[in-house]
Design a protein around this nucleic acid. Sequence first.
DNA 1: AATAATTGTTTTATATACAAAACTTAAGGA
DNA 2: TCCTTAAGTTTTGTATATAAAACAATTATT
Lengths: 263, 263
Amino acid sequence: MLETLHKNHERYFVPGLDRGLRVLEIVAKSDRPLTIAEIAKKLDVSRSSAFRITYTLSHLGFLITDSSNKLYDLGPRVLSLGFSYLNGQDIIKIAKPHLEKLRDITEISSHLAIREGSEVLYLDNIVSKSPFVSNISRGERRPIYASPLGWVLLGDMLDPKIIELFNNMNFQKMTDHTPGNVSALIARIREARTLGYVVSRGYVQHGGSTITAPIFDETNAVAAVIDISGPDSGFNFDEIDNFYVPAVVDAAQNISRDLGFSG
Amino acid sequence: MLETLHKNHERYFVPGLDRGLRVLEIVAKSDRPLTIAEIAKKLDVSRSSAFRITYTLSHLGFLITDSSNKLYDLGPRVLSLGFSYLNGQDIIKIAKPHLEKLRDITEISSHLAIREGSEVLYLDNIVSKSPFVSNISRGERRPIYASPLGWVLLGDMLDPKIIELFNNMNFQKMTDHTPGNVSALIARIREARTLGYVVSRGYVQHGGSTITAPIFDETNAVAAVIDISGPDSGFNFDEIDNFYVPAVVDAAQNISRDLGFSG
DNA sequence: AATAATTGTTTTATATACAAAACTTAAGGA
DNA sequence: TCCTTAAGTTTTGTATATAAAACAATTATT
């Protein structure tokens, strides 16, 4: 009965495609090249199936093998997808001038990010011209729960959905301010929603600060988030409330406005 | 007979995976979201097959649909692959300090690239601190035939292989210096190989110059290529031969050496 | 050195992914 | 308004992708 329902839901699934993409992500997450047997184990399929999938992926250039033809690693063709995605995102183009202005007036690196599952996904990184540069790249991911960007991003998500998303996740403490469980995370999200922004000093990394604000789409859902972030030495902490915060919130509002007209 | 051989070669292919990845690249190359019927036509499969593939890809987050559920575009999950690839490339880490030094002494943006099929794939972009910045990103691609980087990259490829790779490609003229056919391209490649570097002024873009040199692996095959490039205004053209060229060639040799010890 | 265990590859019987065709819905034209 | 065409979805018989099992080759263990 439940089995029938399950089968029904996946009636149109192409299993080879599903597994092939999972293989790519397994290899991507691994810090070293993998053998067919290892891939088979991680994927929970037979070695012969893993063989067929890696055969296909390496013939297509998405995987490459070492000289012994036994160790599989990502091939350069995987880049063809990600780069096109970034280039196709209107929000990046719309946000960029505002982020550049924000960087210029604050002299701190600014960023644009969206939510992807339970992760924050950085879409753009406007590097400060000061010597205090950030080490974040377009395409990089961070866990939502540990990032002020994430707390702001979840501002319009209902508590049950948040609990569903994080109920079986282990919360690794980055600093003393990292929420250690779902209810602590929800408290953080509430604060961010109430205030409309987040000021964090040493929340993510000791000696680093960020100021974060949400971008809204036409339906007032949180579409994305921006911040300025960098080492404490780049900030003038007397000016947080009457300079940095209004600057970030302003930029976010302007991006929201520009986004609304385009969509 | 030939059919049997063909089938034999693809004995282990997973067709669903092959087609799914091709769908992702079709959508990536398109400048607008596509319908199932359009994807089916471009893929040369039935609508029902295209439906199954897009169903799978969108359930996995690699494709997303618009509000009407009819137009398919790339989803953010495609980024998970490309970013891991860039982070896993040792050559980027090894080359970076040399590229930064090159940028610093020449005050011109430096780049690292490899070959991917018939394209040059940029792996890194060290931006000049001068106001003359390059507009090239990691992950970006250019046709090999039109780029000095490409001519250097093909330095160790045998002519028949080059002809095979470019025999049915249409050579779009970017400038007067762009080779218009395979034999013109081979001439360019020969020059690059003989000289050991390429100096180009206005070859790719009017008013832009580049100086390019190859990186070799342990077997003396061309593994990658570096250049400095930017607007003519950033160059001092009296110093090409006794400053810029030795600087680029030196950096390339140092990267080759570092690469040899690691691999 | 001999044997066992592990991994990569090939074969093959069977479960199932596939495309044709039917069906449904939406859009355009007369 | 009705008819035609096109696109999305579902069903279904059949060609084929799949995983088990067999085999080969390599690595580990005694």
